[in-house]
């Protein structure tokens, strides 16, 4: 479904990602792990094209991703958002409708129904009328997942979805991920955590400026690969 070919990204002269190539099939839950500075967030942003690629191609179902952005849901790290923004949880979730809507279009009844269904699926029905900033970290994360659900995407890119959420929310989020995977979507999840969560992924992409290892979890989650990724100073990345 997703095909990344020979992706190179640099910040100024400093290379951040080099010769990254991999593919993700439909119905796979892929974890992206690696040390700080390994380029995990950069990878997701470069796939989305929000940081410039120096070279390389990103194809979604055979087409350049730029042309089919509405088929991709990107859930950035929470830190980039102004939590004082005057928007209700329901409004934030409804933003997911916009990419598939035309200019001047107003939300249809079906859109509104999808929004309510997504809010219910992430368990925020009781908080839908709250201002987004009043929610806890885990609840905010669930609101953004609901926004992604509303987008009706085929590919989901999550940047640190488990940062600062409690284990109950973590489990709930993982449950939603697995439902999406079983529905034939592909998910790419950036994760700092090498704990329990890793065992829920189908595939792992171990990253350190370049692909250290990629494949089914049981094959690549080895001490040798982790040592290659994590031990020693993170140089040149």
């Amino acid at each position: 479904m997703l095909s990344v070919r020979d992706l190179n990204v640099s910040y100024g002269l400093r290379p951040a990602l080099e010769r990254v190539s991999f593919g993700v099939e439909a119905g796979r839950l892929v974890g992206v792990v690696g040390p700080n500075g390994a380029g995990k967030s950069t990878l997701v942003k470069a796939i989305m094209g929000v940081v410039p690629r120096r070279s390389g191609a990103v194809l979604l179902e055979g087409e350049p991703l730029e042309k089919v952005r509405e088929r991709v849901a990107y859930i950035p790290q929470r830190a980039g958002i102004d939590w004082d923004f005057p928007a209700l949880v329901r409004e934030v979730v409804a933003m997911g409708c916009v990419p598939r809507m035309g200019w001047l279009a107003r939300p249809a009844r079906a859109d509104r129904a999808r929004v309510e269904a997504a809010i219910e699926r992430v368990g925020l029905t009781d908080l839908a009328h709250r201002r987004i900033g009043e929610l806890s970290g885990g609840q905010q994360q669930r609101a953004f997942i609901a926004r992604a659900l509303v987008q009706q995407a085929r590919l989901f890119l999550f940047d640190e979805p488990f940062a600062g959420v409690d284990q109950y929310t973590e489990r709930a989020i993982l449950g939603i991920f697995e439902q999406l995977r079983d529905a034939g979507c592909a998910l790419l999840i950036v994760n700092h955590d090498l704990g329990d969560v890793v065992r829920r992924y189908d595939d792992l992409l171990i990253l350190r400026g370049e692909v250290v290892a990629y494949g089914p979890r049981e094959d690549v989650f080895t001490q040798a690969n982790l040592n290659r990724a994590y031990l020693g100073p993170v140089a040149a990345v």
Binding site: V50, Y74, P76, F85, A87, M95, Q151
Partner: peptide
Amino acid sequence: LLLSFDAQWAAAAGL
């Protein structure tokens, strides 16, 4: 509204 709330996401979504 999208631009104001989350410009990075809006750009990623193709706006």
